[in-house]
């Protein structure tokens, strides 16, 4: 069985373009405000949405997402809020996944978490700190619930290890474009095309690139060699830098429109 995310990549491949994947943590800027951001994503034309499960110790995230997670957690965001946000996205017809560090999944219950993703129309889960060695229980939970397990690979992932990780992936392979944490950067790492090429030697799965993409030009560049372009911190900054929520939502929608042009210009 294919997930809506699988179907999306079939579609964008037939259109000879990349997919735009937008990230927002549940509960940011507020629990209700997050739902409006999701709406702005949809109106701005994003192809898929990643709902972040905010976590107290986000070691893969830079200052922008850390601040967003803190703001969300200070309002008491919990698993139910994450699934509610996921449902807002999937109800609007856009494929959506959850991105979370491992401990909230383990605390919620591994099997139950996968079930709740599926029950809310979610296509899968991105797990940035779950190594394949620790993923046995998760593997059977995602298979049983027919959702995509999305693992992150890095430029430092060895040739020997790369196929071991990509063979565990479903939906797409998340390629971290550089060695570092999330955040906007002046340029997308020059190592990214190399990593994508290495991934393609190991799998037929689509490859999406994250870390450091914030502009239409950067999206266009990444779309030249990847199947998906993941943008997170730039949307959060758009909300943080705006004088009020309405202005922030407007900037988010405009940025989504620009990036969505970018992913169509790469080839």
């Amino acid at each position: 069985m294919s997930t809506p995310l699988d179907d999306l990549f079939v579609k964008v491949r037939s259109e000879n373009r990349a997919a735009l994947i937008a990230y927002i943590p549940a509960g940011f800027p507020t629990i209700e405000g997050c739902k409006k951001v999701i709406q702005a994503f949809v109106e701005g034309g994003v192809d898929a949405i990643e709902i972040g499960f905010p976590y107290s110790d986000p070691v893969m995230d830079g200052p922008t997402i850390q601040a967003a997670a803190d703001q969300s957690l200070s309002q008491g965001t919990n698993a139910a809020d994450v699934f509610a946000a996921l449902k807002v996205a999937t109800d609007s017809g856009v494929p959506a996944v959850v991105m979370t560090y491992w401990n909230p999944i383990e605390k919620y219950g591994v099997e139950k978490f996968a079930q709740s993703i599926a029950a809310n129309g979610g296509s899968g889960v991105i797990t940035p700190d779950l190594t394949i060695e620790e993923s046995t229980g998760w593997k059977s939970a995602v298979e049983k619930n027919e959702i995509n397990p999305i693992y992150v690979v890095a430029p430092s992932t060895s040739a020997q290890r790369l196929p071991q990780v990509t063979s565990r992936c479903g939906g797409f392979v998340y390629a971290a474009s550089l060695m570092g944490v999330t955040g906007t950067r002046a340029a997308v790492s020059s190592g990214a095309p190399d990593l994508v090429a290495r991934i393609r030697e190991t799998t037929e799965l689509p490859v999406a690139v994250g870390l450091g993409v914030s502009t239409r030009e950067q999206a266009k560049g990444v779309a030249g060699y990847a199947d998906g372009v993941i943008v997170g911190s730039a949307f959060i900054k758009a909300m943080q830098d705006a004088p009020n929520e309405a202005e922030g939502l407007k900037s988010v929608k405009e940025l989504a429109q620009q990036l969505s042009l970018g992913v169509r210009e790469g080839r």
Partner: peptide
């Protein structure tokens, strides 16, 4: 075995660190 003490221990880290570990 494999860095575990019963159910404890292991590696829960970004893939970027696996090579260094």
């Amino acid at each position: 075995i494999a860095g575990h003490f019963g159910q404890y221990g292991g590696r829960f880290v970004p893939e970027a660190l696996i090579g260094a570990l």
